[in-house]
Design a protein around this nucleic acid. Sequence first.
DNA 1: CCAAAAGTGTTGGGACTACACCCATGA
DNA 2: TCATGGGTGTAGTCCCAACACTTTTGG
Lengths: 241, 241
Amino acid sequence: MPYTYEFARPNLTVDCVVFGLEEENYRKRSPDEPPLQLKILLIERNLPPFKGEWALPGGFVRVEESLDQAARRELREETGIEEVFLEQLYSFGEVNRDPRERVVTVAYYALVNLWKYRLQAATDASDARWFPISQLPPLAFDHDQIVTVARQRLQGKLRYEPIGFELLPEKFTLTQLQRLYETVLAAELDKRNFRKKILNMDILVALDEVQQDVAHRAARLYRFDEEKYRQLKEKGFNFQI
Amino acid sequence: MPYTYEFARPNLTVDCVVFGLEEENYRKRSPDEPPLQLKILLIERNLPPFKGEWALPGGFVRVEESLDQAARRELREETGIEEVFLEQLYSFGEVNRDPRERVVTVAYYALVNLWKYRLQAATDASDARWFPISQLPPLAFDHDQIVTVARQRLQGKLRYEPIGFELLPEKFTLTQLQRLYETVLAAELDKRNFRKKILNMDILVALDEVQQDVAHRAARLYRFDEEKYRQLKEKGFNFQI
DNA sequence: CCAAAAGTGTTGGGACTACACCCATGA
DNA sequence: TCATGGGTGTAGTCCCAACACTTTTGG
């Protein structure tokens, strides 16, 4: 019982906007189709309200866990995803966002490496599915609004923090990295300028490996050097695309 | 009664970090004292826990009001402040942030024009007081952490959104504006470059008025043209200091 | 040998930095 | 006339945008 409060209390949930990046099928359906797609992970609701519709993974916050813990728990329980980049997004508290009773939700967004998690995420939760962000089904509650805010945040954050690497495999080519930026920011970037910029930052390590199984010259693989980035950041360096 | 949840529920509050900018006393106490000070508004608690300590204005969210409405209501009830810039900051949900029971708080930050609100804010709430941000008393709960996050957000936001004008009188001099930036960002800026930059943005209107009651050449007054800024923003213009 | 993507340098323009002196006003 | 802040221009540097061809590889 609350010690200073006699009124009815809102309920509290967490919801997660889980972003993933997926390569298009090898056989392109149309010549101009983009080679990468930004996707989000949705759950089909099997309880009212909005039974049968799609919704963000999430659920009630328990008294013995922090908000961050609640978000990670729900993500694990509903999608099998663990140990990913997860950050608080915004709290949504309109009075009628849940048609039945008052529910405030603290929204999070997560970035998932689909090269690592594709199988796992697909099997752990049979009612979970990845949707291209440009072709989302109707969403329950105000989840479309949450997705919109999450997408804006991702676009903003991507430009001034090196979080894009969370969406790529550990070893990636510069072209993959560029396409990631082009896909999320919905903008075209100049190849030479992009490479100069990112390599001059000195936060990538060139590996002695190249792409495999491509029908043309194989590209060099790189990985993100997180330690180096931390050091540079302490010296005042600012990541910026 | 919640329809899908049988567990104990966290309580939900809002808290507001209210920023204001105040000119130093006319008689400087030391020659190098900064001419502007960033302050925040605190409330002395008259109930346990932390009775007698200082805390952010805030309180429980009611079922019939949104989070934004709750923040504005608490601000009005506890400090008399209304119709100010108010934006959600972050939600704090560590399990033991309240020593007695589980309370999650959605923190907001507000920017107050102290030239307009000084009197009112001082009288409406006898237990409210403005503190220089560099000389805060010990705060209740995790409010020092909330203040830290709010300050970082203010510094960041100030650089890429024209929100600083909220802290100044409607008519201000370029020097006042520059000092505002120097105070909040804790950095010195070059006078000529600052003026060129801000005037080139074309978001200020030069008034046919000058400063009054100064013992030297009076500076021209300007005001922020919000409408012009909106138009420029739509065309892709990005404010940046 | 052909298709497909990898990889690579230069140049011009715009924006930022650094910097010092004269001006207007009131006391 | 003096003290105080108001107001102004230029030159050098750096960063960014624009831009096209050669190389490598597998099929």
